Computed example of a mutant assay.
Amino acid sequence: MAKTVYKGVLKTWKDDRGFGFIQPDNGDKDIFVHISSLKGMARRPYRGDILYYQVGQDEKGKFKAIDVRIEGVAYQPKAKTFAGWWLWLSALILALGSAAVAAYLQK
């Protein structure tokens, strides 16, 4: 079952603290939004941005915006770092192997 996506305007934003409130287009009460709900956005939000979001609850049962996207802002998923990790490990193994062979040949 698909979750409902809501639309609203970022009414307030405290950039130094990483949170604000969205004024929903449907007239509901303002809803809390945290910077952690904006994963993958190319920039931080500004007051007045149009946001698309789903509604979830925090551990205390209060409603909050989740899976938030900023209208007109590119989504940039984090690159997978496995390839970089594998390259460094391969280089380390090659270097250690070369040092061992060099030490063996000098005997």
Rank of each mutant, 00 (worst) to 15 (best):
R47W: 00
A91K: 06
A91P: 06
L10E: 07
L89Q: 02
G8M: 08
V33Y: 09
V33S: 06
A100C: 15
Y104K: 08
A65F: 03
I50F: 11
K14E: 15
D30F: 09
K60F: 08
L10V: 12
A102I: 13
I31Y: 03
L94W: 08
W85E: 08
L38Q: 11
F21P: 15
D25Q: 09
G40P: 01
A79M: 07
L94G: 06
D30Y: 01
G61I: 02
I35Q: 09
Y6D: 04
G20F: 04
T12L: 13
A79Y: 03
K29I: 02
Q76R: 14
Y75C: 03
I35F: 14
G84K: 05
R44D: 01
K62E: 10
K107M: 13
V68Y: 03
G56T: 11
K107H: 15
D49Q: 06
K14T: 04
Y6C: 05
L51Y: 08
K64R: 15
T81Y: 00
Y52E: 01
P77S: 02
L94D: 05
A83R: 13
G61P: 00
V5C: 01
A74T: 04
Y6W: 05
A91N: 00
R47Y: 02
Y6T: 03
S98M: 05
I35D: 11
G18P: 01
D58I: 04
K64H: 14
E59G: 15
I93Y: 09
A42P: 00
I31S: 05
M41E: 09
R69H: 00
L38F: 09
Y53V: 11
L38V: 04
K107A: 14
K11A: 07
G97P: 02
V101E: 07
H34A: 08
K7W: 01
K64V: 04
V9L: 12
I50K: 11
L10A: 11
K39Y: 00
L38G: 06
Y75K: 02
Q23P: 06
L92I: 08
P77H: 08
I22P: 07
G72M: 13
G27L: 05
P77M: 05
G72W: 14
Q57Y: 12
A99D: 13
S90N: 01
L10N: 13
R43E: 11
A42Y: 00
F19C: 09
K11G: 05
G18F: 10
S98P: 00
D49T: 14
G18I: 13
D28T: 03
K107Y: 14
P24S: 02
D16L: 09
D16R: 04
Q57L: 12
A2E: 15
G8F: 14
G97S: 09
K3R: 08
G61N: 05
V5Q: 02
M41V: 00
P24E: 05
R17V: 05
A99P: 07
K7F: 04
W85A: 01
G61V: 03
E59N: 12
I66S: 13
A42F: 01
L92H: 00
G20E: 04
R17S: 12
F63Y: 12
A74W: 00
W86E: 11
V55N: 03
W85N: 07
A79F: 03
D15A: 04
A100V: 14
A65I: 07
A91W: 04
S36M: 06
T4P: 00
A79S: 09
Y6S: 14
A2L: 13
